Amino acid sequence: MPVHRSGSTTVRRSRFAAAGTLLAALSLLVALPGAAGAAPTAGDPTAPARGTATMGMGVVAHDGQGGLPTTRAVQTEGVDVSGHQNAVAWSTLWNSGVKWAYVKASEGTYYTNEDFAQQYNGSYNVGMIRGSYHFATPDTTSGATQANYFVDHGGGWSKDGKTLPGVLDIEWNPYGAQCYGKTAAGMVSWIRDFVNTYKSRTGRDAVIYTATSWWQSCTGNNASFGATNPLWVARYNTTVGTLPAGWGFYTIWQYTSSGPTVGDHNHFNGALDRVQALANG
Rank of each mutant, 00 (worst) to 15 (best):
Q65D: 12
Y102R: 08
D63C: 09
T251K: 13
A136T: 09
L26M: 14
K99R: 15
L243K: 10
T183W: 01
P45M: 10
P2E: 14
T112C: 08
T52I: 01
I170E: 09
V30R: 11
F135V: 12
P69H: 02
S6P: 00
D139A: 15
L26C: 13
T52Y: 01
H153Y: 07
L23Y: 09
A49Q: 11
I252K: 09
M128V: 11
T141F: 08
G156V: 06
T9F: 12
V188T: 07
V98M: 01
A271H: 03
G270T: 08
T202I: 05
S217L: 12
W172L: 03
S224P: 00
S8M: 14
A234Q: 05
L164A: 10
R192V: 00
T239P: 00
Y110S: 14
G108E: 10
T71E: 08
A177I: 02
A227M: 02
V30Q: 05
Q216M: 06
E107V: 02
V103F: 05
R15H: 12
Y120T: 01
T137R: 15
Q85L: 07
T210N: 05
L29M: 11
N125D: 15
G43N: 04
P2R: 14
F150H: 02
W190M: 08
F194S: 02
G37P: 00
A227W: 01
N121T: 13
G246V: 01
H267Y: 15
T109E: 11
W247N: 05
W247A: 01
A101I: 05
F249Q: 15
T140L: 14
